[in-house]
Nucleic acid binder design. Structure first.
Length: 305
RNA sequence: GGUCCUGUAGCUCAGUCGGUAGAGCAAUGGACUGAAAAUCCAUGUGUCGCCGGUUCAAUCCCGGCUGGGACCA
């Protein structure tokens, strides 16, 4: 099995700088595991590494899409796995760094997405016109297991499950049942953490910094090139909140507060994912000893067979 | 100085014609297999400003005190 280092953690915990430090020591190349950083021109708001911070460490999966493109887990899985192969072939260590839990898990675990045609507009319209109860009843017919598992209020998932069957003729349950739910790499998963109150302070400060660095100009630039608030990447935190500003429903300061709040809530959700979905070696970013210990463990892991 | 309004959950406020209280937001926990920075679920004990009075019983009525606001001087 190929070795892969994975570095995850909530937003603003300090993943980027630790990743560069580790990459230097391990002769690694970094693959960004982030659902927004793949888009060009979504830079300040997505917390992309700056050129000068990279210290010549190769970075992948950043700026690989145009701002109006669509992207999905399956795309990420395919591209990231290709990168892992390439980097390994170069005798470098691949290191996935990011906060998008699903993307990262789909990449390193044996998730399998059946090939999918472009979803039929007609079918989507038909499903979206149905109420929750009707969706559940429909799913009950083709995939009772998922109809049971998905909460009736979660329309997005209900529609997704129905669509999977429409597109691929395989139910979501069958798809999942065919997997072993195991990693396909020898992955060493590091989780960055710190005291919650401190993290929240850092998040607030980071948002202020983004605004100082020109977040609003970044949004204006995107709008000027034809991106609008309904586009996929614009649903990212730090981006979607500005819609209210341009609609004159909120002041700049109110938008900034919204971004901070959403970022804090996001960090909490990230913890929930990382705590429950993957076996993680947690590192306390405020404890130098904790990082030292991590490096020792990484050394040991790396020299294993 | 006077008159009136006001003080209930971290915040904004409901409410109890007297039987110790509830919404939204926040917060916390959780789910998660093609939108995942998305989507969804669960969780509400708080000296009802303080002291006293009336009452079987007061957050609710009465009195005083105190904080906030508006208006009149």
């Amino acid at each position: 099995m190929k070795k892969v280092v994975v570095l995850v953690g909530p937003t603003a915990v300090g993943k980027t700088s630790l990743s560069i430090e580790l990459a230097k020591e391990l002769n690694a190349e970094i693959i960004s595991g982030d659902s927004i950083q793949v888009f060009k021109d979504f830079s300040i708001g997505s917390g992309k590494v700056k050129r000068e911070e990279m210290l010549d460490i190769p970075h992948h999966c950043i700026d690989i899409l145009a701002p109006k493109d669509k992207f999905s887990v399956a795309d990420f899985q395919r591209i990231a796995r290709e990168k892992i192969d390439e980097i390994s072939a170069r005798n470098h260590l691949p290191m996935i760094v990011g906060g998008t839990g699903l993307y990262i898990k789909a990449c390193i675990y044996d998730y399998e997405f059946s090939s999918q045609e472009e979803a039929d507009e007609e079918i989507i319209k038909k499903l979206e016109a149905m109420n929750n109860e009707e969706l559940v009843m429909e799913l009950q017919k083709i995939d009772p297991e998922q109809a049971q598992a998905i909460h009736p209020n979660n329309r997005k998932r209900l529609i997704r499950a129905l669509l999977i069957y429409e597109m691929t003729a395989v139910t979501k349950s069958d798809q999942i049942a065919s997997q072993e739910h195991k990693p396909i790499y020898d992955a060493f998963i590091i989780g960055c953490t710190m005291d919650r109150a401190t993290l929240y302070e850092r998040i607030n400060e980071r948002v202020d910094m983004m605004v100082e660095e020109g977040l609003l100009d970044e949004i204006k630039g995107l709008l000027a090139q034809g991106v609008n608030f309904d586009d996929h990447a614009m649903q990212g935190i730090g981006y979607r909140e500005w819609r209210a500003y341009f609609d004159k429903a909120m002041t700049k300061d109110e938008v900034i507060e919204e971004i901070k709040k959403h970022s804090r809530q996001f960090a909490k959700r990230q913890y929930t994912w990382f705590n429950n979905q993957m076996p993680i070696h947690w590192v306390d970013m405020q404890e130098p000893d904790s990082i030292k210990q991590l490096k020792k463990m990484l050394e040991a892991w790396r020299s294993e067979q």
